[in-house]
């Protein structure tokens, strides 16, 4: 089947099998490998992207379901030059170690700050509960989001 999806502002169009997951559309069809696959049960959140503004786990969305929609991935966060405030926050607060969960964390945090520009630590933890990190223990991720909020993400 044919799908048309706007990804990071650019319209893409591909002939795909209906079973193609959005994450594989991004990674394999478009070569946008910043979005990662960490599990098969929609637990880890590494594959989180924004679909029409909402954070979704792109391993649990068919590309067909995103047909006609707009997807934002980590590659588009700072497409125009300097880093986005969240990226700066993660860098400054050491909010990442191995970096594998980071793109998904960043996208989940993007939604979090759009919905709640000045979250408490507890709200940050709640906003990121769908994203597993095995390296940081989350403390510095919370700090990173707080920093970004202060900068006005």
């Amino acid at each position: 089947m044919k799908v048309r999806i706007t990804v990071n502002g650019t319209l893409t169009e591909r002939e795909i099998e209906p079973r193609t997951l959005l994450v594989h559309y991004l990674r394999d069809e478009l070569g946008l490998t910043g979005t990662h696959v960490g599990c098969d049960t929609s637990n880890c959140g590494a594959c989180t992207v924004l679909l029409d503004g909402d954070a979704v786990k792109s391993c649990t969305v068919l590309a067909a379901q995103a047909d006609g929609g707009a997807v934002a991935t980590v590659e588009g966060l700072a497409a125009s030059g300097p880093l986005a405030a969240l990226q700066e926050g993660f860098w400054e607060a050491h909010g990442l170690q191995c970096g594998f969960c980071t793109p998904g964390m960043l996208m989940a945090a993007t939604q979090l700050l759009r919905r709640n520009p000045d979250p408490t630590d507890a709200e940050i933890r709640r906003g990121l509960e769908g994203n597993l990190c095995r390296c940081t223990g989350y403390a510095n991720i919370v700090r990173a989001v707080r920093l970004a909020a202060r900068k006005g993400a």
Binding site: S42, G45, D54, A55, V56, K57, A108, E129, G130
Partner: peptide, 9 residues
């Protein structure tokens, strides 16, 4: 129920 991403979908 679930997590924020699940609640969106």
């Amino acid at each position: 129920l679930g997590d924020p991403q699940v609640r969106n979908r």
